[in-house]
Write a protein that binds this DNA or RNA. Structure first.
Lengths: 187, 187
DNA sequence: CTTCTTAGGGTACGGTCCGTACCGTAAATC
DNA sequence: GATTTACGGTACGGACCGTACCCTAAGAAG
């Protein structure tokens, strides 16, 4: 029998790919070790040899599904901020966002690594956007602080988590920008 | 055999009490239907006749453990806000907060009912405190809006959820107040 | 007081999923 | 060619959830 057995990186790739497929099709709740193993044409041993548990595999698989956001530059603070917030909202309300939230709920401590250096939490994006606004004289220089710059995403995230809403309407976004962000960072 | 069988409200009380005990001792993950039933001296039938699933029972049990926060009134906006935020932080970092977070993660849609009228999310507290500050001329009247008034708790909640931290240090609280809240609501 | 209905108690079970253990064998290494 | 490592197959223990029965006490109806 030509068993043509896969090993190492090749097998790892197959597992990760299968896991990503499962995530896409059935979300995090549908990501079971048995299904991933079967789909990858292997068995759970091979998975547990690489990831300690389901959550870790889920995170790894999520990573390959997520894509970076490209920063907007409309030339005005208000529209830049709203656009950035809308992008975040699109992500969070997409199937991918649902996965992210489920993952966050299941293994919060694991998610810290998503926010390490070279992070994807987007604080760089907000700081860069705000820096341009400061340069234009639109914003206070003191606002150039991660805690301040990322207030809108924090509020949006709160909206999702605290209210368990599958979608946040655009009015909330404009409210966050108009009532909170602009009064906060404008000079 | 004197079976002295409990019914109705009495039994319901026993179940709820047992569930609350389990929550206190083992947290939400340790709240299992079998254990609650055994502890209440009954069986799962009686539970499922009253609550549709584990999450609903967990929420009901949590309710009887949670207590209301009493609003501070120090006479100054900065200290009032910090005190209110500290109270929230104490709650969230306590075992009770851990339960709340687990519950929120497991059944977000159920938690909406915690935020109904007569809510415990504390937006009333923040609005009341802010109203006093407005009356003293410390804050802008336009800030008297739920979205604006509750920004600090939203940011704190975000800190817990997004970072999966079991505890948020006091410096973060002061940062939230000094860098965000005061600049935002002061005239 | 008797009969009927409702709600508890006891128990067992199906089903799902995680994580682990073995066992034989292909692939890589020596 | 011999040895070690990593896969594949499979089975299993264990935890829970939620449901189904069957028997009986408590309360209601007559």
């Amino acid at each position: 029998m030509a068993d043509t057995r896969r090993r190492g990186a090749e097998l790892e790739e197959a597992i990760l790919s299968a896991a990503a497929d499962e995530l896409r099709e059935a979300g995090y709740p549908g990501l079971t070790m048995d299904r991933v193993a079967r789909r990858a044409g292997t068995n759970k041993n091979a998975i547990y040899r690489r990831w300690p548990n389901r959550a870790a595999l889920g995170l790894a698989a999520y990573r390959r599904l997520a894509s970076a956001v490209r920063p907007p530059d409309t030339g005005a603070l208000a529209t830049d901020a709203l656009e950035l917030l809308r992008a975040a909202n699109r992500h969070w309300s997409s199937p991918l966002g649902e996965i992210l939230r489920a993952l966050l709920a299941d293994a919060p401590e694991l998610m810290a690594e998503l926010r390490g250096p070279g992070n994807d939490d987007g604080s760089d994006l907000w700081l860069a956007m705000l820096a341009r606004a400061v340069a234009r004289g639109e914003a206070r220089p003191e606002a150039l602080h991660p805690r301040v710059a990322t207030v809108p995403v924090a509020l949006l995230r709160n909206e999702y988590i605290a209210r368990g809403a599958p979608h946040v309407p655009d009015e909330v976004l404009t409210e966050i920008i108009d009532l909170v962000y602009l009064p906060l960072v404008r000079r």
